[in-house]
Design a binder for these strands. Structure first.
Lengths: 188, 188
DNA sequence: GTCTATACTAGGATAGAC
DNA sequence: GTCTATCCTAGTATAGAC
């Protein structure tokens, strides 16, 4: 079995670790336990250690954002329907608010510098796609962009709050109101 | 000089460490460097180590939330004016978006369990105070509560995004629109 | 209350056998 | 590609002098 296959099994596990524990909170021993691989095997796959793991997780996430969030928004059909499709994927990815955001986990602390550019790319792709749908639905470019940024802010904020309170209702409400927040004409 | 004075000097330093690095990202050596105290002195002040430090930081934050955010909201005067006063304090506390939120830093990872209840108290006090002002300004209880929760979500989310992108404009925009978000009749 | 010194554990990383 | 064994550093925590 080649390297390529291994990575597709490893990266989702690493993603789960980093989003739940943050960069500093994940030890190589944790990774070893979660993957079933010994430390030496891990260094075989990731010679530069934990930082490389995090970098590859972010690359993996960037692909995931494009496939799961951006692609549905760019599909054919009614803007509202495409937005609902994305919303479903978001709800799924964050497990209804039980799982945190990797942007959060990997940008906390001084170790985050190497990751900032990759994070920015994923954020920009997602926000741009949401804004584009809003423009199609009739909003001005300026308003569409602001609402798209607000949508992402609301998602991130509700994930922090849901985690902090151990209660997913903040996330659920944000998800439910997301189409209205992005495309609606009035406050909720 | 008594114990009481020492804590008022130590806790703000600990707060800065935890909000920037998260719980797992802070080592006793970091604390030693930041405070100028040797490790043994730190264990003299906090016999239960890092967890006690974090707990006391959260107690300190709870007081700060009540004094800096809740108190202005409960003062006499125009609701909009009181809200602007709180907004100023929030902007100041987060240093215009350059400093992260302690709720975020202390709830990431498995070590966060002991802190959840304290975090929840601060959150509830702040949200309740914002909702109360919104009710005074004429909103229904239900809408006021939702808007207050949304305001906190927006603050938390914009802090995550500002940190992730290394750019404070998300936070600044949320702060600028906060009164409208809470009390306004339409979308921004 | 703070220091130096020390013990011990956990974490990161590598060498070399299979 | 994975393992065991090992190394070294960093991290937590304590003892005892001042």
């Amino acid at each position: 079995m080649g390297d390529f296959m291994e990575r597709t099994e490893l990266l989702p596990i690493l993603l789960e670790l980093f989003r739940q524990q943050g960069y500093a909170g994940v030890s190589i021993a944790d990774v070893s336990k979660a993957t079933g691989l010994g430390k030496s095997s891990l260094y075989h796959h990731f010679p530069e250690g934990k930082e490389q793991m995090a970098r590859e997780v972010l690359q993996h996430v960037e692909v995931g954002v494009r496939e799961s969030f951006v692609a549905p928004l760019k599909a054919v059909g009614d803007p509202h329907e495409r937005l609902r499709e994305m919303t479903k994927m978001v709800e799924d990815f964050y497990d209804g608010g039980r799982k945190g955001c990797i942007l959060d986990g990997l940008t906390l602390g001084a170790a985050s510098e190497p990751f900032r550019q990759m994070v920015a790319r994923s954020v920009e792709a997602w926000v741009a796609a949401m804004a584009s749908v809003a423009v199609e639905a009739g909003l001005s470019k300026k308003v569409a962009r602001e609402r798209a940024e607000d949508a992402l802010i609301a998602i991130e904020g509700s994930l922090v709050l849901s985690r902090a309170l151990g209660d997913q209702k903040a996330f659920k409400r944000v998800i439910k109101n997301l189409p209205q927040r992005l495309l609606g004409e009035t406050n909720l």
